[in-house]
Amino acid sequence: MSRFLVTGSAGFIGFHLARRLLAEGHDVVGYDGMTDYYDVRLKHARVAMLRDYPRYRHVTAMLEDARALAAAVGEAPLDVIVHLAAQAGVRYSLEAPRTYIDSNLLGSWNVLELARRLQPGHLMMASTSSVYGANRVIPFAESHRADEPLSLYAATKKAMEAMAHSYSHLFGIPTTMFRFFTVYGPWGRPDMALFKFTDAMLAGRPSDVYGHGEQARDFTYVDDLVEAVVRLAEIPPNESNRVGSRDVTDTLSASAPYRVVNIAGGSPTPLMAFIRTIEKAIGTTAKLNMMDMQPGDVPQTFADPKLLEALTGYVPATTVEVGVSAFVDWYRAYHAMEKAA
């Protein structure tokens, strides 16, 4: 049994991770600002499910509030900090850039300061495939340059990686930075493509398809991502677990107990194929409104998962057919419950 702090525990990924940890008998302090970036009723429904576990304690406060963050955990040791809270979304960063600075930079710095004080056994921080930006070498490997972000969201995440490396070096904090690739599944965010397409198809509305449907994404089912995070939690970076295979480039820093790891299956799906999968799961034909690529978007994400596999023996493998079907089933059940209420 371990004691975890999970920031963003009312969010999509944080909820799934916290529930998995609680089911395994761990203590979890969940910390979330419950912001109105999307419908807070969905966040409250997630937290209500987590409160069913006696080992869960929820704190509602903003990540930018350093005193509240410190008070949430007190002086008791933390085994693992999993920092998932962030202002997400590429397109929203064009509308409200300041929120990305406040949450992703100031908020993440507060987490780093907390880790400096408490010295957890492992600090894990969520980055994103968006940091690869203008990189055109595929598949994306952790060792590739990620110095040309195409959105402020990506820039703040890359900056967070750099800040975390400096703290890892200066204060000896074992830190894993994981880069997510288009996570989807039940309890997903309403601003994400799968939620939007499903909502529009069931209502008979047209769906906006950016990039004229020519994009591709390395979709990662949320349960697969959680499995990878749980496995990585047991592998705090140090020289004893440096990967020695000539086929894998380990990102373990030469000057800090710090590592960057992709979490994805390494199997991109064309956007139009993804839409057809949703149509099949729902049993309808989508009305599509083809649009130009949005600023900040990239044409393709494609992960190299060899480092994840070398470290954990695991690679996400849930097919989009299985994952989309699970989401559509959840969506229907959740909205039926909302209407009944």
Rank of each mutant, 00 (worst) to 15 (best):
R189P: 00
A159I: 09
M177C: 12
F195N: 14
M192V: 15
E161S: 04
F171G: 13
D191T: 08
Y167E: 11
G172N: 09
H165N: 04
K196D: 06
L152T: 09
G188C: 01
A154Y: 02
Y167F: 15
Y184K: 12
M163V: 07
M177E: 15
F180Q: 13
F171H: 11
F195T: 07
G185K: 07
F195R: 01
F195D: 07
R179E: 05
S166Q: 14
A193F: 15
I173G: 11
S166L: 13
L150K: 07
K158C: 03
A164V: 02
Y153H: 06
R179S: 08
K196V: 15
F181T: 15
M177W: 02
T176Q: 07
A155E: 02
L150V: 15
L152E: 01
Y167R: 07
I173M: 03
K157D: 03
P186K: 09
P190H: 09
I173S: 04
A155P: 00
P186A: 15
A159Y: 01
Y184C: 06
A154G: 02
I173A: 11
F181Q: 12
A164E: 01
T175Y: 03
F181R: 08
S166H: 09
L170E: 15
F195L: 02
P174M: 14
T156M: 04
K196A: 14
F178K: 11
T182F: 08
T176M: 10
S168C: 06
Y167I: 07
H169Y: 04
S151H: 04
M192G: 02
